[in-house]
Design a protein around this nucleic acid. Structure first.
Lengths: 218, 218
DNA sequence: TAGATTGTTAATCGATTAACAATC
DNA sequence: TAGATTGTTAATCGATTAACAATC
């Protein structure tokens, strides 16, 4: 069955693989390829080729047996699915070292994400410029986010300020929050929170290391 | 069935929830509580209480009907499962802005992770001190990591240096790599890679935002 | 034609949820 | 005792893998 532009929400694991597919396809296009096989995509991600084909089928892009899939169409469809066909303006709240790192990270351009304002509670930072972005006081979140019609907030404040800042972003009309704190934010149903939890990630790694060691010399 | 100290690898979703459980239990202990119910744990994480009970059953800690689970025992068992009962020394490779942010991040102390050396290819950084950690040239990875018996490497270099640095860490005896690049590292079977992929996380968020918008005004 | 690759349907697997029994 | 909470077994659900047909 070809669902074509069904435009419904896609399975999360599929979505998570799209950026890696995109990276590889762009590389291959730069090298002159116009078509790419599910085997090539799968090899790059370390997954089974059928899985790659399923992920592609979700977008309704047909492939040609013996040739593979049209690279350009794949890129366009994946970018559309991810909302990366337009630039998304974002507001960063919290200009500590992690906030600095995110503003300075060049990789977001590829994902059409652009941090256009930054906020911090520290008066010493206010007015300063971080990688071309001016730091404003927290009290201006409402006014500026609303005026710039920003839909995405990036939260890199200390844990104890997280809920309060999230509320300010939501009140200003943000529709999604990229949460780098370890607080479970409470927001209205129509706002989406995506958390990057370093403790979670580290837990998986250290559990695996600790466990291997135990089984090797018990 | 009570599996007790089975010490086998636990399901990943369970492991990922342990840090959040730990955070809450420590808070409640600080407030004087000595027992905690599965309902309290579940509420803090936004999950079903049975799921919390299953996660606890994995460690073989019995609870008391009408009382809950013994807080201290939970903390000890979870820390043991995560390998957080001892301090883990780590080496950081790549002192760009993200590397700086990680060295400066205070939260790792809670997880008994300690960054004890840092490396960078930039001669201008070498010899400088970042939050008390001296930056060394890349060429010393082998010697120092081996001498300090470091088992965990943190990779925060540009993508094109990632595989090379990973190989150096592995050659020096590292057993796990916390990978902040977007490269799929190839390492021997006995080395574990845990990746923090910001593009993946952002993809989930922007897909959700883009999708809601489409369904609201189609 | 032969062969590589896509596409589809069924089986498996793991995690979560539901239902209910056991216990303090 | 009554009631809250733990503990266990079965059902559901989603994603991946396996098997095989279709197609250029």
């Amino acid at each position: 069955m070809n669902e074509g532009d069904r435009h419904g929400p896609l399975p999360l694991p599929t979505i998570r693989r799209y950026p890696a597919y995109l990276r590889l396809i762009r590389e291959r296009m730069a090298a002159g390829d116009e078509e790419i096989s599910s085997a090539a995509l799968a090899a790059a991600l370390g997954i089974d080729p059928v899985l790659a084909r399923k992920d592609i089928a979700m977008m309704g892009i047909p492939g040609r047996p013996r040739w593979g899939y049209p690279a350009r169409e794949l890129v366009e469809a994946m970018q559309r699915a991810l909302g990366w066909d337009n630039v998304t303006d974002a507001a960063l709240v919290g200009c500590g070292s992690l906030g600095h790192a995110l503003v300075g990270y060049g990789g977001f351009a590829e994902q059409h994400l652009s941090i256009v304002v930054a906020f911090d509670a520290n008066p010493a930072l206010q007015g300063q410029t971080v990688h071309g972005v001016k730091v404003r006081p927290m009290t201006e979140i409402g006014r500026l986010v609303r005026r710039l019609r920003i839909r995405l907030g990036i939260l890199t404040v200390p844990d104890d300020a997280a809920q309060e800042c999230a509320a300010a972003l939501v009140a200003a009309g943000v529709k999604g929050i990229w949460n780098f704190t370890s607080v479970q934010l409470s927001v209205p149903d129509d706002v989406i929170v995506q958390s990057v939890d370093l403790a979670q990630s580290l837990a998986v790694l250290s559990h695996a290391i600790a466990n291997r060691q135990r089984s090797e010399r018990p």
